[in-house]
Design a protein around this nucleic acid. Sequence first.
DNA 1: AGAGAATCGTTAACATGTGAAGTGTTGACC
DNA 2: GGTCAACACTTCACATGTTAACGATTCTCT
Lengths: 148, 148
Amino acid sequence: MSPALPEFDRSLPMMLLRAREAAMARFRPVLTDAEVTEQQWRVVRALADVAEATPSELAERCAILPPSMTRIVRTLVDRGFATRRSDRNDLRRTLLSITPAGRELVSAMSPQITAIYDEFNRRLGEPGLDELLERLDVLIAEPSGSRD
Amino acid sequence: MSPALPEFDRSLPMMLLRAREAAMARFRPVLTDAEVTEQQWRVVRALADVAEATPSELAERCAILPPSMTRIVRTLVDRGFATRRSDRNDLRRTLLSITPAGRELVSAMSPQITAIYDEFNRRLGEPGLDELLERLDVLIAEPSGSRD
DNA sequence: AGAGAATCGTTAACATGTGAAGTGTTGACC
DNA sequence: GGTCAACACTTCACATGTTAACGATTCTCT
């Protein structure tokens, strides 16, 4: 008999998707209120941590594909949350920075976002959250089980 | 001082997103090979488990929003993986079923999909996977911490 | 120097995510 | 039995996901 597929509803991809949906459901009202999309917020958030970054670096850190990043950066620059300049040492590269308006957005949203993080912390417990993150790390880590 | 935001890179939403991306990266080649999208596969997979289902039920089970479900069902019917009829007792409702071609798709893909599930099982260990799913359940479960 | 490969960002084309509004049908209530 | 709210599905508009291909720049190697 052909190997039975795992239970659909409790398969790893479905559970990860549902868990993320459940988490984002808490953040979404805050994002909507600030009139930024989830992805725009990720990029602004990432830009707040560094002096400058290239679209590629942001794409990596935010888990957003380059074509999407192109559009998101355009939006953020248009809305005044980020600025861009080109790298004089490598004209292929673009360097992006957060603007004061971008920083204001981050600081205005921080309290509410932090409160939601705290809520998840309470729900899972600190050790529970840490264990969860560790297991997710295992998934994220390169399998490297290959042979080289 | 304003409350510091959690580490961006290890925040729960980012980790869940990365973990899911890592997992899907393993499945994607199989899906591409079969020429179905991730979401189309989820719906076909869900249809294979039941005699009939409404778009709403599928949307719930597959974590796909109704507008997307409308488009996906249209595609699946066009491609011959599903059929639709309307409920005579409630003309608002549509009833969907998998076709033989849909079942063939599922059984053709099952071995490869199962192999990937097995790989994750090995990486995490059975108890590790179970613990992971339990913690994800905590996130998915209604907070219900409200007061009613 | 110069040809060709590699890199970075972008555009294109299609599928899906997301929130709002629309259509037809059913149910509840007067 | 007629009005109105609720429901199931759809459409619309815009943002993003996904793959492929493209243009400009840089690197490599001869």
